[in-house]
């Protein structure tokens, strides 16, 4: 699924976090979003999901413009892994299963075996699924958030520093899984060389006006 961003500006108060950002991402492309700290990389990802409302500009996902009406439908096309994901409280397995109870995901079937497969692949002990989320380490939380994102089988993946708490071996395994679906469009914010290797192109928020693909 392709993404088109046109003239996007996000302001906090009077100050623009970024202004007039333009880019096109084609289906299946893997794009790195770069920029100095505070340049609005995470905010741009949030804007693509309607979690930050732009001051001006347009976002089109597939053939649909992101508006207050289409946002609920478009969110079901995107999976998001936040920087230091907050997964709430309760048993890990319940948290993984929760989105499968949402109305928007009614077409998805809960596949417990797929959870076990990802656990095995991402070097997560299955006993951990019965633990409380608050007992997980940062790296375990990241892998659980990536597992949820993959289980939802969305055509677009937005990743915000998804490898920051993973060790080298796991990074390589997760990277392999992320790029296994060639039609999956991925936009990511990362400083990790493992992930930067997969980037087809880079959007630099330090030089955004008129920039892009």
């Amino acid at each position: 699924m392709n993404i088109k961003v046109d003239n996007l500006t996000v302001c906090y108060g009077q100050a623009a976090l970024f202004a007039n950002v333009r880019f096109d991402v084609q289906t299946g492309q893997k794009i790195c979003i770069a920029g100095q700290s505070g340049s609005g990389k995470s905010t741009l990802l949030k804007a693509l999901m309607g979690l930050v409302v732009p001051t001006q500009g347009d976002i089109t996902i597939g053939a649909e413009s992101l508006t207050e009406k289409s946002v609920w439908h478009l969110r079901s096309k995107i999976a998001y892994v936040a920087q230091e994901p907050d997964l709430g409280e309760g048993p890990v397995i319940d948290r993984i299963r929760r989105p499968f109870g949402y109305h928007a995901n009614a077409h998805l079937e809960w596949d417990r075996r797929a959870v076990s497969d990802y656990c095995c692949q991402f070097r997560l002990d299955e006993k951990m699924l019965d633990k409380d989320i608050s007992d997980l380490s940062g790296g375990e939380k990241q892998r659980i958030a990536i597992t949820i994102a993959l289980l939802l089988r969305r055509p677009i993946l937005l990743l915000d520093e998804p490898f920051s708490a993973l060790d080298k071996e796991i990074k390589a395994i997760v990277k392999k899984e992320l790029i296994s679906d060639l039609s999956r469009t991925i936009l990511f914010v990362s400083h990790e060389s493992t992930l930067l290797e997969i980037a087809d192109d880079t959007i630099d928020l330090n030089f955004t006006t008129g920039a892009g693909q």
Partner: peptide, 10 residues
């Protein structure tokens, strides 16, 4: 963050 995560999950 947890609230946004759930909105993003649909």
């Amino acid at each position: 963050k947890a609230f946004f995560q759930q909105l993003a999950e649909g």
